[in-house]
């Protein structure tokens, strides 16, 4: 690393003794880009919607990483990090170009990996399942009025008529008029997505919160593997040929 690209703030922190969570956080390469010292000016807090309603502060997040105090980090990892709205207002306004939102994102990843996120992700099963089995993240069927009573009486009307309304709207647009997913992604596409999750190590991580989902995805992949791998092989050969 050249003298010019060294970050004196994170260098200093790295040389101090830190606990397990702290060390895991510092392994994420985004931290170097997200922390350039902190003036404690509070500009981030003044702009933070989560700080307006929760016991959460982006200033505290930056100070916490600079201090490296394991107890405070653990407290954040177990609860407070889930209050952040990920709006990046802190990053936009910070005079030091810090990004507490990115630090929080690194911490959320670690919280999941370390098995600290079960409570925070309760109620998240349906989204996770859709991502891993359908190739997209939301479906009209999920927006049932009983799940969203605060969205008002018109939701009930929309929910009962959604099939015919969508049919009218998407006439002539194949793949768009579906209600169990956002659009009808092809089986091969879903398989590619699942393979990305598996190859990147992300699927294994899902197992720390939703172990049954890993079983579902692996069974789904096994069922399709022969046909899909043959297609991938064709694609590989085509790519190789194009390089020659």
């Amino acid at each position: 690393m050249s003298e010019e690209t060294k970050n004196p703030i994170t260098e200093k922190i790295e040389s101090t003794k830190g606990g397990h969570f702290y060390k895991e956080i510092m392994k994420d390469f985004r931290i170097k880009e997200s922390l350039h010292g902190c003036l404690n000016c509070g500009t981030c807090v003044a702009n933070c919607p989560a700080a307006a309603f929760y016991d959460y502060s982006p200033r505290e997040v930056c100070q916490m990483i600079i201090e490296g105090d394991e107890e405070t980090i653990e407290e954040y990892m177990k609860g407070k990090i889930w209050n952040c709205a990920q709006c990046y207002s802190c990053k936009y306004r910070c005079p030091k170009e810090n990004s507490a939102a990115d630090i929080v994102m690194a911490m959320r990843e670690i919280a999941v990996r370390e098995g600290l996120a079960a409570e925070a992700l309760a109620g998240y099963t349906r989204i996770a399942k859709l991502v891993l089995t359908r190739g997209n993240q939301l479906a009209p069927d999920m927006l049932s009025p009983d799940a969203f009573p605060d969205w008002g009486p018109r939701m009930i009307e929309l929910s009962s008529k959604k099939m015919e309304m969508r049919e009218e709207l998407f006439e002539g647009f194949p793949g768009m008029n579906v209600v169990d997913r956002a659009w009808a992604a092809e089986d091969y596409t879903i398989y590619e997505m699942q393979k990305i999750w598996e190859e990147s190590g992300a699927l294994e991580k899902v197992g720390t919160v939703f172990p049954f989902l890993v079983d579902i995805v692996q069974e789904d992949m096994e069922d399709k593997a022969e046909e899909m791998e043959a297609k991938i092989q064709e694609k590989k050969e085509k790519l190789e040929a194009s390089k020659k």
Partner: peptide
């Protein structure tokens, strides 16, 4: 081109849950 061989970006999932990782 309205492609049916595309997937969601999965960023909503990522920012909401921390499930996934940067390589994914």
């Amino acid at each position: 081109y309205n492609d049916m061989q595309q997937t969601s970006c999965t960023a909503w999932n990522y920012h909401a849950s921390g499930l996934g990782n940067l390589v994914q």
